[in-house]
C-alpha cells in the first residue's frame, strides 16, 4: 500500500518516446486484430475479387513473376476499401468513449499515441491480407514449386504493402477532421477515381500515372504484370517510375501522419 502511494508517476513516465510508441502500437494491434469485422470485411473483399480474377486466363501463365503480380493486382483492387473502412473509426475512438481527459493526464503524449495507433491498428488490419497472401502462396507452391515463394514475397512488398500503408495512414488521420462516415465515402470515391477512372473518361485522374496507389507501375516494371490504365496512357513502366510510385505512397503516408501529429500536438493541452 505504501509503495503504491509513494509512486508519483506511472512506470511509462521514465521511458522514452519509442518505448511508449511501441507500447501503444502493441495495444492497438491487439485491439484491432481481435475485431471479427476486420477479418470478415478484408477476407470477404479479397474472396469477392478473386472469385472472378482479372485478367482472364492469367492463372495459366508459366512465368512466376507475372502470376504473382496479377494475383497481387486482384488482391489490391478491393481490399484497401475494407482496410480503410474498418480503420476509420479508430481516430475518434478515445473521444467517443470520453477517454481523452484520462489519456491526457498520463505521461504518454499525443505523438506516441497517434503513431502507435497508426502502426498497431494499421498492422492489425493488414494482417488478414498477409494471411490470405501466405495462403495463396502455399497453394501456388503446391502447384508450381517453391520458386513462387521469393517472388511472391517481393510482389507483396512492392505491389500490395505500399498501397495498404498509404490507405492505413490516411484512415487513422483524416477522420479526425471529417468523422468516419464522410471519410469512408471519400475513400471509396478516391479509390475509384484515382485507380479506375482511366484517361478514356476525359476526367483528370492519377489513374495510370505513378501517383496511383494500385501498384500498376511496380507490377509492370518488375514483375511483367498486367497494366491497365497506364497502358491506355501508352506507358511502359520503368524501374525508376516504379520506385517513384512506391516512394510517393510512402512519403504521402508519412506526411499525413506528421501533419496530424503537429496539428493534434498544437491542440493538446499537455
Amino acid at each position: 500500500m505504501t509503495a503504491v502511494l509513494e509512486r508519483t508517476a506511472p512506470p511509462t513516465a521514465a521511458q522514452g518516446r519509442l518505448a511508449k510508441t511501441v507500447a501503444a502500437a502493441r495495444y492497438e494491434y491487439l485491439m484491432q486484430v481481435r475485431r471479427p469485422a476486420v477479418w470478415l470485411v478484408v477476407l470477404a473483399l479479397i474472396t469477392l475479387r478473386c472469385a472472378s480474377p482479372f485478367p482472364p486466363g492469367f492463372t495459366s501463365t508459366t512465368d512466376h513473376a507475372t502470376l504473382v503480380a496479377d494475383w497481387a493486382f486482384n488482391f489490391i483492387m478491393l481490399c484497401p476499401i475494407g482496410v480503410g473502412a474498418v480503420l476509420a473509426d479508430r481516430a475518434r475512438r478515445e473521444a467517443r468513449l470520453e477517454l481523452n481527459d484520462l489519456l491526457t493526464s498520463t505521461p504518454t503524449s499525443i505523438g506516441p499515441r497517434l503513431w502507435g495507433k497508426a502502426i498497431g491498428a494499421g498492422a492489425a488490419t493488414i494482417t488478414p491480407v498477409a494471411v490470405a497472401w501466405v495462403g495463396l502462396l502455399g497453394y501456388l507452391t503446391a502447384q508450381r514449386g517453391a520458386g513462387v515463394i521469393p517472388v511472391g514475397l517481393a510482389a507483396f512488398a512492392a505491389i500490395i504493402l505500399p498501397a495498404l500503408l498509404f490507405v492505413a495512414a490516411y484512415s487513422v488521420t483524416i477522420p479526425y477532421l471529417t468523422g468516419p462516415a464522410l471519410y469512408r465515402l471519400g475513400l471509396f470515391g478516391y479509390w475509384i477515381w484515382g485507380n479506375m477512372v482511366g484517361p478514356r473518361y476525359g476526367i483528370p485522374t492519377p489513374a495510370g500515372t505513378p501517383f496511383e496507389p494500385i501498384g500498376e507501375y511496380p507490377s509492370g516494371a518488375w514483375f511483367h504484370g498486367v497494366m491497365f490504365d497506364a497502358k491506355q496512357r501508352g506507358v511502359h513502366a520503368t524501374g525508376g517510375e516504379a520506385v517513384l510510385s512506391i516512394s510517393f505512397l510512402l512519403l504521402a503516408a508519412l506526411a499525413a501522419l506528421a501533419i496530424t501529429h503537429y496539428v493534434l500536438s498544437r491542440r493538446s493541452p499537455s
Binding site: 480503410g84 474498418v86 469512408r184
Partner: peptide, 16 residues
C-alpha cells in the same frame, strides 16, 4: 454491430 464493416462490404460489393 459495426458500421465500418457494413460500409466496407457494401462499397466492395458495389465496386465488384
Amino acid at each position: 454491430r459495426s458500421p465500418g464493416a457494413a460500409s466496407g462490404l457494401i462499397a466492395g460489393i458495389w465496386l465488384a
